[in-house]
Design a protein around this nucleic acid. Structure first.
Lengths: 215, 215
DNA sequence: CGAAAAAATTGACGCGGATCAAGAAAATGG
DNA sequence: CCATTTTCTTGATCCGCGTCAATTTTTTCG
């Protein structure tokens, strides 16, 4: 469990100099947590930015009536909870580990130091803008696309256009991630199977080429 | 049409020193445009950040089937299209003037200069984080709230909890802004009128106190 | 291994809001 | 000011997906 190596693989820190990555490694607080761990809750005060090294984490908000609205599923190499560093001091979302995870935490004051370096700062701003773009696209998707298209977009974003996907999350979690109920996902999967486009057995999804360019 | 004064009123530039605001005023390119002007289109290359001084602008994305999905309605004092400054060089959304507008443009290179100043940079990052929070909340709203709640949220955000709202956009535009069709909005307004919560006559919306705390 | 819990499936049904079409009202522009 | 276009309204109909309930299947763990 080498922090430096983890940082080295995180795409967010790609453009950064070796020296500052080593400095960063000193600041980071590593932690491993089992599946279903609640990392933080919406509205709670916080003072760290997180970098996910391994596993998946779901960020969601609660609707007034208690439903979980998934904002984003975080995959390895991505940073989250950066929002609390500058603006308010409260997390705007809840974070739950969908699988066993390995995360690095970076305290506010350490990050503020790092931001003094121009290249780090530029990467940081670029990351924020990328995220803004992502959220913009997610809005468009959730509002205008049906469940099948959202499933396709999700798999594409998280795993790429592959024939075999080794999926670590369960169907309930996936349903939530694409803004649907488990029942609806179940029926969709049945239909995709009938159309010979996609099958889900155990932890493996097999997608036909046709799936990726379906109507 | 004093640029400095405009900047002085823009909340984005609130925390900034007088000196750098004056410098900024020199860089800004002011422009006034009539209603319905297309400022830029999704996918077009761009090289300026915009600050809206007066009027309203709709930022939207097109769905695959050509519907307009409104991401955000910009109000005076807000900045937009900052995304092209760092990340890619293409606008991620289309921008259309909902009313006659007055905007200031800030070219990429000028902004990059400004970002060298620590206080400006901090404000800039804070603005990005605020926007991220906004988009996060918009997702939650669009996914989990019905049209009536979305109407309430929109009016609240854009005009505040007022008894009388002078509305400059038309019903079609408002319907799009809350992710509904004009037909649905029309029926909703009829219902709100019947329930004595809200009336819309000409360019004026009158909302009863009860409207703001409706179920 | 076997019992209990959790996840997934299946069917019946209902609802919010989209769509389509037609007509009324309002805005626009010569 | 009138003619044309655009916006708004109203009714009828439809559909995707959620909800609820009942099983079935899978996972968990003593």
């Amino acid at each position: 469990m080498d922090i430096y190596r983890a940082l080295d693989h995180a795409r967010f820190f790609e453009g950064i100099t070796r020296a500052s990555k080593e400095a960063l490694a000193k600041f980071c607080m590593p932690s491993q947590r089992p599946k279903n761990t609640l990392l933080f809750r919406e509205g709670e005060p916080g003072e760290a930015m997180h970098l996910l090294v391994g596993g998946r984490i779901s960020l969601y908000k609660l609707s007034p009536d208690g439903r979980e609205i998934v904002i984003k599923v975080i995959k390895p190499g991505e940073v989250f909870a950066e929002v609390i560093l500058f603006e308010r001091k409260f997390y705007p979302v809840t974070a739950v580990a969908l699988t066993d995870i390995f995360v690095l935490k970076l305290l506010r004051r350490d990050l503020l130091d790092l931001l003094r370096q121009e290249d780090f700062r530029n990467d940081f701003i670029a990351m924020l803008l990328r995220k803004q773009r992502y959220l913009t696209e997610r809005i468009q998707q959730l509002v205008s696309q049906d469940v099948e298209q959202r499933l396709r977009a999700f798999l594409l974003e998280q795993y790429g256009e592959k024939k075999e996907i080794n999926i670590e999350i369960n169907k309930k979690q996936l349903a939530a991630a694409i803004g649907a109920t488990p029942e609806t996902l179940s029926r969709l999967l049945q239909d995709l199977k009938r159309r010979r486009l996609l099958t889900w057995k155990q932890k493996v999804i097999s997608a036909e080429p046709g799936f990726w360019r379906a109507v």
